[in-house]
Write a protein that binds this DNA or RNA. Structure first.
Lengths: 194, 194
DNA sequence: TTGGAAAGTAAGCGACTGCTTACATCTCTT
DNA sequence: AAGAGATGTAAGCAGTCGCTTACTTTCCAA
């Protein structure tokens, strides 16, 4: 493919990536409003003027973060395991998976129309996938409820700081959630007996 | 009791209440960071200096809002109907129930230790009540998961702006959620047949 | 070697933030 | 009626914010 060019002392692609990474981490840690462009540039080891040259606006940068890695999780495995994969991100101790754009979205109430549209689109994609796990006219609503559950667990755990969820073993949580999800999705199937 | 004093042209209690109400509405609409003390004072029809005289700090005012009406919902009826009552707040079209402090908390990622403690305490109170609905060693975890579900629904609906949840009939949502909750809480009981 | 574009930097602008201060006005008690 | 405390007001301080500008340094092709 492309031959490796010698590493440059000045590499716009590298600093762009560094800014993107730092922004993702900080947005996930503090949320949009409490993250400063100066902080982002500092963590990236770059000048803040470059942030605006490469991304235009703080909100554009936020959207870039979300769009960049937001869909990875969705396509990183079979749909049946999607709830489990989402849970793993939310229950992991930061910063292992704590800088995921989903976490950034939980902490950010960005008002801009563009950001809202991006978030809605992502939500729809997840719901569309999850709705494959059930049938019937309520399939979409049920998929939305599953997503809402996972989101709520992440929110209570990492934003509200629930001690119960923080102390609980991830496997136990997942077992309980799986029980509820199964009951919600399987119309006639019996609840999995213990 | 106390005889009605004639209405004063200057009434500190009234303006205090007006500030509290305006703050509750705005925090619920925009979240903590995007709400300005000037906005609060303007909506309350008061001078912003009074806000600091009566409440000390913007964050203290936030805590006052949460503490003032935060526990009403919990004690407004029997525990069995608590999930339904929470859902009604989250699914109501604002501003009917849209200015509830719970909604304000969903939109606010306040970092102060005092606010965090207040939120945790409220969460624990709700979990303690909800855990009466089930038994066994996992009771607390299950109660937390129920609360997380309701919170997640509210978050997806009013912060992320989910179209599915916005368009769905509240009764349908509640029926589905109730099914999942029952399965989660009742260990051996069968799922309520249709 | 050199010229011009790309990459990086320093400094600051204007607006807005939470909060304070110094002051005017009202209300009630004596 | 008068003094004092409660209530309301106008103005501004100091700091931070997102973003821009004018500039220097590096890189690479010709």
């Amino acid at each position: 493919m492309s031959q490796n060019p010698p590493p440059r002392r000045r590499d716009s692609q590298a600093t762009r990536a560094a800014l993107l990474k730092a922004a993702g981490e900080l947005f996930a840690e503090r949320g949009y409003d409490r993250t400063t462009v100066r902080d982002i540039a500092a963590r990236a080891g770059a000048n803040q003027a470059l942030l605006f040259r490469y991304f235009g606006t703080k909100e554009d940068l936020f959207n870039a973060v979300v769009a960049h890695r937001g869909m990875d999780l969705l396509h990183s495995g079979p749909v049946e395991q999607l709830p489990r994969r989402i849970l793993e991100i939310f229950l992991a101790e930061p910063p292992e998976g704590g800088d995921h754009p989903i976490q950034a979205m939980l902490r950010s109430a960005v008002l801009g129309a563009e950001s809202m549209a991006l978030r809605k689109e992502m939500g729809r994609a997840y719901v569309r996938s999850l709705s494959e796990l059930t049938e019937g006219p309520e399939a979409e609503l049920r998929a939305e409820l599953v997503l809402a559950w996972l989101v709520g667990i992440g929110f209570c755990r990492s934003v509200l700081g629930s001690d119960v969820l923080r102390a609980a073993d991830a496997d136990r949580v997942e077992a309980e959630v799986q029980r509820g999800i199964s009951a919600l999705l399987d119309l006639d199937a019996p609840v999995t007996p213990s």
